[in-house]
Design a protein around this nucleic acid. Structure first.
Lengths: 234, 234
DNA sequence: CGACGAACGTCAACCGCGTTGGCATAAGGG
DNA sequence: CCCTTATGCCAACGCGGTTGACGTTCGTCG
């Protein structure tokens, strides 16, 4: 049955669920995103998604060949939200910085979805549009193709990787994060300077930094390194 | 029963399994690592681990409160392996590059552990040792404390984030990865130059790159950006 | 040297997961 | 108004983590 799922053609017949709602690709994806935001990734299952839709879990298989395909659709919806409203200025560093922060933020808004989706190739329209835009900015700035592709690869994977990492922290159960903070206070903040001089000397700076995402700093370093390769600034 | 698992005190009673082996924390962790390396993460389950040990899966719960705790122990062993044998050369770029690749490789060798461990502060001996080493390399190279801490933060999170991302790809079931490849071939490789000129122009380069990890390139870009801030090379 | 009690492996069972095949039913065209 | 077909529902399968009860084994103490 898995292979019989309708891909994306128009649907004709509509039959309401027992609770009156009518299923759609979009409705399923939106509900999935809401579930992920509210209850976390570990609480996201096909059965619960069906329940939230007022439908049986097996009804999902009329729309997606499996959870795999549904995950791809979720990833693409995230990318759609990241890209809407973006307009290039023509200055490549500004444009890339904007795009990176947008993608990071879109995934962070749905932490659990990010963890699920970051490692998948969705191959859908919005992901492709983002890829084309990033490559376009780089090639438009005059980077030769090998350099453009290399920087593009790092840029995309870095955005997704940091988003997934930060999202995973956000998605932790409360007691886990409290435990992590307690571990920090009990170890890093009290390391003697004799055995761990570098941590001890910078513990104040460390404490300020480690609670925030490293992505903005990482993005700036990436752009700086790219700029030193750029043809316009040799 | 989960909370009754013995943490790390000495054990006194020993009782052989039906096939003669005697269970230990270390034996369980080593067997788990071997299973992960040989059969991949998708085949790693508590039941199969029990089978590989010649024991019932439920016997594991005498040693670990659950799969989470077992995974954390695996992660600790991973960091241990990443750091053993590392000796600083005194040249900070070489040292940081070596450390980054070591951590990334150690986590990649055991994908499931990477995904679970990357977002947690373990606060255990080996993690602290790694942090002290990285900070030491940066401060030893003459970076001022704020810059050292900033680069340290990006370096650590970048290594973990890419490791987790790459690990998540590796941990996917085989069908999922085949599906991703099929999606790639069906879309990116066939985009017309009229609508997607940049992807079409670089599709050959893209196909070569996207199957590999972006981490080595990302690491090199980070080191290049840091070098341009370094006091010795102003 | 014998018995006791704790340590610990085993068994059977529970519940939830993704997924599937068969069936029931509603929608919409003729 | 009926008939086809899309589509939701149900029951079931195999597999996952986890648990409680049970019985065996071993170190220890008298």
């Amino acid at each position: 049955m898995a292979k019989n799922a309708v891909p994306e053609e128009q649907r004709r017949r509509r039959r309401p669920t027992k609770q009156g709602t009518v299923l759609t690709h979009d409705l399923i994806v939106d509900t999935a995103l809401r579930m992920l935001r509210e209850h976390g990734a570990q609480g996201f299952t096909a059965r619960r998604l069906g329940l939230a839709l007022g439908a049986d879990a097996s009804a999902l298989y009329r729309y997606f060949a499996g959870l795999d395909e549904l995950t791809r659709a979720i990833a693409d919806a995230l990318m759609h939200r990241a890209m809407t409203g973006w307009v290039p200025t023509g200055e490549w560093r500004t444009d890339l910085r904007d795009l990176g922060l947008r993608i990071h933020a879109a995934y962070l808004a749905h932490p659990q979805a990010a963890v699920l989706a970051a490692s998948r190739v969705s191959g859908r329209a919005h992901e492709i549009a983002a890829d084309e835009a990033i490559l376009g900015v780089l090639r438009g700035a005059g980077f030769a193709d090998p350099a453009a592709v290399r920087i593009y690869h790092v840029f995309v994977d870095q955005a997704l990787a940091f988003a997934a990492l930060d999202a995973a922290s956000l998605a932790l159960p409360v007691e886990a994060r409290e435990a992590d903070e307690a571990v920090w206070d009990a170890t890093y903040a009290r390391l003697p300077a004799e055995t761990h001089p570098h941590i001890a000397a910078t513990s104040q700076l460390l404490a300020e930094r480690m609670n925030a995402s490293a992505y903005p700093a990482a993005l700036d370093l990436l752009l700086a390194a790219a700029a030193s390769e750029a043809p316009s600034h040799p």
